[in-house]
Design a protein around this nucleic acid. Structure first.
Length: 565
RNA sequence: CGGGACGUAGCACAGCUUGGUAGUGCACUUGCUUCGGGAGCAAGGGGUCGCGUGUUCAAAUCACGUCGUCCCGACCA
């Protein structure tokens, strides 16, 4: 593309609106523009990057034999009611009515429609396996969009769905997709980790997330320093290595603890360390109110509690709920004498003579023991901490990193097939539900993650495969015919060799052009200036500090070498 | 959904306290000079001051409402 007479702009100053480095750089470089909260326009340069990312994914999908199709965004609400997910998504679905007041939603994900599509074909076990995918716009009414393209309300997703007769077939299909995902992210040049994760509203048997490692990540990744254990913190198991305390169980007794509500306050007041305490938190699920007990220095992992109870939702109980359940002000809840179910963390079950709230304002019990109440569950419900022993190898210790979820693969099993009646006949003429997998990649998030991971104080540093243009030819003075002609000649020559080339032939000062090319992050720059009088131009990689002087007829060779290395 | 802040030209902001001619920098147009890392000078164009209602002789400025945006939290494939 030649910049003169083209739609191209950059902003010199950063925008107030953007709360992330990538969002700011993408807006400043004229790649995207915010339309409303969490909704963006992709401008030509940004769209070009997006299409390159899509092309890589599409290529990898097609290689697995998956077939591309396109679903609508506008979907009758009934479809999600049937699958039971209308409630699960709740307010995060955009919903609307047509002129006859019939309810529709804008699709947040498309398992249901793919099941309906598959139903037109699936009759027999001979119809498997197959895999369908699309690039399509999803809508999710996020309560708080943020970080540029990271958390948005309208976004393109590549979603794929595999259909098989049984779990063995699903395993094969899943492995294919999993490998295709790895290939895709490797080709994009993203720094990522694969972690096991919660299945969330998707349900199913297994979920693994592809997480781009960046500081602004919203997920916490738990990684072992010794083995290859990697997990989203939501589902990271904790090992309890402590031995059960051998201490004699003493009778529990009341202790007055006026105004001491938090663990810190009580432990200061009583002069005991926080790991002698048991913290009791009340949670409200969609079914009940429960109490969860963890050691004073631990935190509750809400996902583990939710899964243990088979609940869809879980929230810390509001103060009035706590007061009603404990007959005490918030801060004095304890397991003894509670009328609701109590969940005890494994670590707590090994403690003796611990301190807990007494369900009476300003009072705690000391010397409490497990025998003093009846837990409904003793289970791992605490949050893993940095430095904890790895739950898999039990040798190494875990560290945390922050990540952005750029891809997710699910073994769904027969959940959707059962809900929506997608069945086939086996060789013995028996009906069975179809076994599915679903696989998503967010190309916009990949784009944003790449910028987060690859930039400097001048702008973006696109990986070679992703850059909107591979080569930028900067004509220093476009009024000098010699320079202009040479620039145009190189431009058409490199294009003929298949390179994506940008010719900066604008009537701007050199500094402006250099800064713009750095900002938009073109990997290789060719500068045509005064040296053209000696038939020479300069070549410089975006992240190089030194320029190379090259004869004009050697330019193609140098470019080729640059992209091969 | 709770708490806070902000809304004035394409972008970033001042003006508001104490009501009276709408301003600055960048960007844009024209001219001259300049021309290898975001040029200088000069002359210009561009504004329903988010929107509505009220108070007032008079509202960007005060009051109330409303919409939008951002931040913190809650929430969240």
């Amino acid at each position: 593309m030649k910049l003169k007479n083209s739609f191209f702009y950059t902003l010199r100053e950063s925008v107030k609106d953007e709360d992330s480095g990538s969002g700011n750089l993408l807006v400043r470089s004229g790649m995207i523009k915010k339309s409303s909260s969490g909704v963006y326009m992709y401008m030509p340069m940004g769209y070009k990057v997006l299409k390159k990312i899509e092309a890589i994914i599409r290529d990898e999908m097609d290689k697995t034999g998956a077939q591309e199709l396109l679903m609508p965004s506008l979907i009758p609400e009934d479809v999600y009611i049937q699958s039971g997910r209308r409630e699960g998504f709740g307010n995060s679905m955009f919903s609307l009515k047509d002129r006859f007041a019939k309810p529709f939603v804008l699709g947040p994900t498309h398992e249901e429609l793919f099941v309906l599509a598959a139903a037109s074909r699936v009759r027999s076990y001979k119809d498997f396996p197959f895999n369908l995918y699309q690039f399509q716009t999803k809508f999710r009414d996020e309560p708080r969009p943020r970080f540029g393209l990271i958390r948005v309300r309208e976004f393109i997703m590549k979603d794929a769905y595999s259909f098989d007769a049984d779990l063995a077939g699903l395993d094969i299909a899943y492995k294919k997709m999993f490998d295709a995902y790895k290939n895709s992210f490797d080709r994009m040049g993203i720094d990522y980790k694969i972690v096991t994760a919660d299945t969330g509203v998707m349900g199913g048997l297994l979920s693994e997330e592809f997480q781009a490692v960046t500081e602004i990540g919203e997920d916490v990744l738990v990684l072992c320093d010794t083995c290859d254990f990697a997990s989203n913190i939501e589902v990271a198991a904790c090992v309890t290595l402590e031995e059960a305390s051998g201490a004699d169980e003493l009778p529990y007794e009341k202790v007055s603890t006026p105004n001491a509500k938090t663990i810190e306050e009580v432990s200061n007041f009583m002069g005991e360390s926080s790991n002698q305490f048991v913290k009791t938190l009340l949670y409200k699920t969609d079914k009940e109110v429960v109490a969860v007990c963890v050691r004073g220095d631990a935190e509750v992992n809400e996902t583990k509690v939710r899964k243990l109870l088979g609940a869809n939702e879980i929230n810390l109980a509001e103060p009035d709920v706590v007061v009603a359940a404990t007959n005490a002000k918030v801060g004095f809840a304890g397991p003894i004498g509670l009328k609701i179910r109590v969940i005890v963390d494994t670590q707590v079950s090994l403690m003796r003579n611990f301190i807990v709230g007494a369900n009476e304002t300003d009072v705690h019990f000391k010397n409490a023991n497990l025998r003093d109440f009846t837990p409904s569950f003793v289970s791992d419900v605490r949050q893993i901490k940095e430095g904890d022993v790895c739950p898999v190898c039990r040798q190494g210790h875990v560290g945390f990193k922050k990540g952005i979820e750029i891809g997710n693969t699910f073994k769904l099993g027969d959940k959707y097939a059962k809900a929506l009646g997608l069945e086939y006949l086996d060789a013995n003429n028996q009906l069975h539900p179809v076994v599915m997998g679903s696989y998503g990649i967010g190309p916009g998030r990949c784009l944003a993650a790449l910028v987060e991971q690859n930039h400097d104080d001048k702008g973006i540093l696109w990986p070679k495969e992703i850059a909107p243009y591979q080569v930028a030819i900067v004509v220093i003075n476009s009024k000098v015919d010699l320079q202009n002609d040479a620039g145009n000649l190189l431009y058409s020559q490199l294009k003929q060799h298949g390179y994506d080339v940008l010719l900066d032939d604008r009537d701007e000062r050199a500094g402006v052009k250099f800064n713009d090319m750095d900002l938009i992050g073109i990997p290789l720059r060719i500068t045509v200036g005064k040296t053209i009088e000696n038939n020479q131009v300069e070549i410089k990689g975006r992240s190089d500090t030194e320029v190379k002087i090259v004869d004009v007829d050697q330019v193609y060779q140098s470019v080729k070498e640059f992209f091969q290395r």
